Simulated scan of single mutants.
Amino acid sequence: MSLRVFIRKPTKEDCQELVSLHRRSEKFHFPWAFPPLNEQECKNYINCCQNEDFEGLLICHLTDHKIIGVANFSQIFYRAFQNVYLGYYIDVDFAGQGLMSEGVRLAINYAFDTLNLHRVETNIQPENRASINLVKRLDFTKEGFSRRYLKINGEWRDHERWALTVEDWVKS
């Protein structure tokens, strides 16, 4: 399978392109994700990517290098846990083309091979069928249901908990 995307770390030079993507996709992301919508918020995000417990990865189109999505690893734990929480979103203009599956697959490879983690977990609102379908395609296992798990847009929202371990990961 030839890939159509690659991943890379964000830089301050990406702020304008990211803010444009976020503004263009704001309604599409609602109520699942709330990425930075102005330059200062974007700079704060890129600074956060320098923390040892957070990794931000841009998913870029292979042909023109345009940013088409983001995969974030937060609360990176090592030692006995070796776990990370995955969040992701795509530019509305590229949704439904399978590009996010490719990008998240590369991000998971990065988590297991580069970060040397054992487990990737993602928590998804039950109504977010597109996101649940994506993790199913990547062989995540549904592990449970967390009532009022995260406060999103001012409300405590239920989430399904999905996870993948390195032993179950089929790299491609």
Rank of each mutant, 00 (worst) to 15 (best):
Y110K: 09
Y45Q: 02
Q75T: 05
W156H: 14
E55A: 12
N72Q: 10
E127C: 08
F140S: 08
D53A: 15
I68D: 02
L57G: 06
G144R: 10
R23L: 14
G98N: 03
L21N: 03
C48M: 14
L57Y: 00
L134C: 04
E13G: 07
V166Q: 07
L86E: 02
E160F: 08
K136W: 01
E41K: 12
F81H: 10
D139V: 13
N116L: 09
K66W: 01
Q82F: 04
T11W: 03
T141D: 13
V104L: 02
T11S: 15
L138A: 13
T63Q: 13
L57W: 05
Y78M: 07
D64E: 09
E26D: 13
A33M: 13
G154I: 01
G56Q: 01
E121R: 09
W162P: 02
L99P: 01
W32C: 05
S101P: 00
L106R: 09
A33T: 08
S131D: 01
K171C: 07
V19E: 11
P36T: 04
E143D: 10
R157Q: 08
R161G: 02
E26M: 12
P36Y: 07
F6Q: 05
S74C: 13
N72H: 07
K66T: 11
R79A: 05
F54V: 09
A80C: 10
E17T: 10
D93N: 14
R161T: 12
N123H: 12
G56W: 00
W156D: 15
Y149L: 10
N44F: 09
L106I: 03
E26F: 11
C42Q: 14
I108D: 00
L164Q: 00
L164Y: 01
V92W: 03
R129I: 15
E167Q: 10
G154T: 02
S74F: 12
I67K: 08
Y89R: 11
R4T: 06
Y149N: 15
N83G: 01
Q82T: 06
E13I: 09
P10M: 06
I46C: 01
M100D: 04
D14Q: 02
L57H: 04
A111P: 00
Q50L: 06
E26R: 15
D93M: 12
C42M: 15
R24M: 08
I67R: 04
R157K: 15
V120S: 04
Y85H: 12
L58A: 01
V19S: 11
F81I: 01
L106D: 06
R105F: 05
L115T: 03
N51Q: 13
D91N: 02
L3I: 03
E127D: 15
N72F: 00
D93R: 08
Q97W: 02
V135W: 05
V5A: 02
V120R: 03
I132V: 10
N72D: 06
K9R: 12
A111M: 00
